[in-house]
Amino acid sequence: MKTRITELLGIRYPIVQGGMMWVGRAELAAAVSNAGALGTITALTQPTPEALGVEIDRVRSMTSEPFAVNLTILPTIKPVPYDEYVQVIVGSGVKIVETAGRNPEPYLPAFKAAGIKVIHKCTSVRHALKAEAIGCDAVSVDGFECAGHPGEDDVPNLVLVPAAAAQLRVPMLASGGIADARGMVAALALGADGINMGTRFMATREAPIHENVKRQLLEHDERNTALIFRTLKNTSRIFRNAVAEQVLDLERQEGTTFADLKPLVSGERGKRIYETGDTDDGTFPAGLAIGLIHDIPTCDELVSRMVAEARELIHRRLATMMDKAGNETACVP
């Protein structure tokens, strides 16, 4: 499957595993890359820049295929040495970086000088155009369906992807609500050059998280997410559990601040969920794609199945809607 994304990134299939805090580790990234897609490790999952260098070496010991490093740039209570993380990425020889959060422009000169391709995650057309303007090589456009932060515009991918495609010149990934071949084919039809999946890759055998978390994603549907931080204008989509309900209850109370919510939503509690399997111990991101998760395959099984089913959809089901002369024919459900 050749698209502008496969050519830009040097991968076989236009499928990218998005960076996920505490989840984007070497085991998962290598398995995704070995399957012909693009695996991604998450820089800030590692406690220090030096630890990131070790994790990059671990990926290289497991795959010879391209992989990416995610660098999410956000304001934090504890200062993050972003410059040092960038230095490690550049010095490691990694050739693909996924940036997210704030404007990555301060770090682009270093990435460009090292020949690194930069994909920036955006939640709106205007942000995608800004990323293109500052020199990003591609963008990942995240619709309202995505896990984590979908922005404040609440525009789903059925509108957001073609709206972005109509104005962008750089290659674009569609992200949010995609978990199978149908979503991939739809994204390509809407104008994307590939897809970015996070939640679906959490429910794979190689994902380095507790089986209880994977089972929760498997056993629940698209109704089981919650939007928190809406009152703070920093919306985040998470799995709907007991702690999520507590957060929502607090947000309904007038005058609630982030300080009131912090004990419930701390990153350390989320990390502990992935380690212990107590899925009511804190919060963790999950997208609407949980409604499309029906098994826990290997990454190779997932990617191979998606590609095979996508070809089937394109060449058989959709092709049968056109006659040999290329004229529209009746389509019977």
Rank of each mutant, 00 (worst) to 15 (best):
K2C: 03
T3I: 10
R4S: 14
I5R: 13
I5A: 03
T6P: 08
L9E: 02
R12K: 15
P14V: 07
V16N: 13
Q17N: 13
G18V: 12
M21A: 12
G24N: 01
R25W: 12
L28S: 09
A31T: 07
A31V: 05
G36P: 14
L38W: 06
L38S: 05
I41C: 09
L44V: 12
T45W: 03
Q46A: 09
A51Y: 09
G53E: 10
I56D: 01
M62I: 05
P66L: 08
P66H: 05
N70P: 10
K78R: 15
V80D: 07
P81F: 07
Y82T: 07
Y85H: 02
I89K: 04
G91T: 11
S92K: 09
V94Q: 00
T99S: 12
P104R: 10
E105Q: 15
P109N: 13
P109M: 11
F111T: 07
A114V: 04
G115T: 11
G115N: 12
K117D: 01
K121Q: 13
S124H: 04
R126H: 12
H127C: 06
L129Q: 15
E132L: 04
E132N: 04
E132W: 02
C136R: 01
C136N: 08
D142V: 12
F144C: 03
E145H: 12
A147Y: 01
G148T: 09
E152V: 11
D154T: 07
V155L: 14
V155C: 13
P156M: 08
P156V: 13
L160E: 08
L160D: 11
L160W: 03
V161W: 00
A164C: 15
Q167W: 07
R169T: 15
A174R: 00
G177F: 08
A179H: 09
R182H: 14
M184H: 05
A186C: 11
A189F: 07
A189E: 09
N196I: 02
M197H: 02
M197E: 10
T199V: 07
R200C: 00
A203Q: 04
A203W: 04
T204Y: 02
E206C: 05
H210A: 03
K214D: 05
K214A: 02
E219M: 13
N224K: 10
I228L: 15
L232P: 04
L232F: 15
S236T: 15
I238W: 02
F239A: 10
R240V: 06
A242S: 15
V243A: 03
Q246L: 10
V247Y: 01
V247S: 01
D249W: 09
L250D: 08
E251H: 03
Q253G: 09
G255S: 05
T256L: 06
T256A: 12
F258M: 11
F258S: 08
D260P: 02
I273P: 00
G277R: 00
T279Y: 00
T279M: 00
D280P: 04
G287V: 02
H294V: 01
I296T: 11
P297N: 11
T298Q: 05
L302W: 01
S304F: 07
M306H: 08
A308N: 09
K324Y: 12
T329N: 11
V332D: 14
V332G: 01
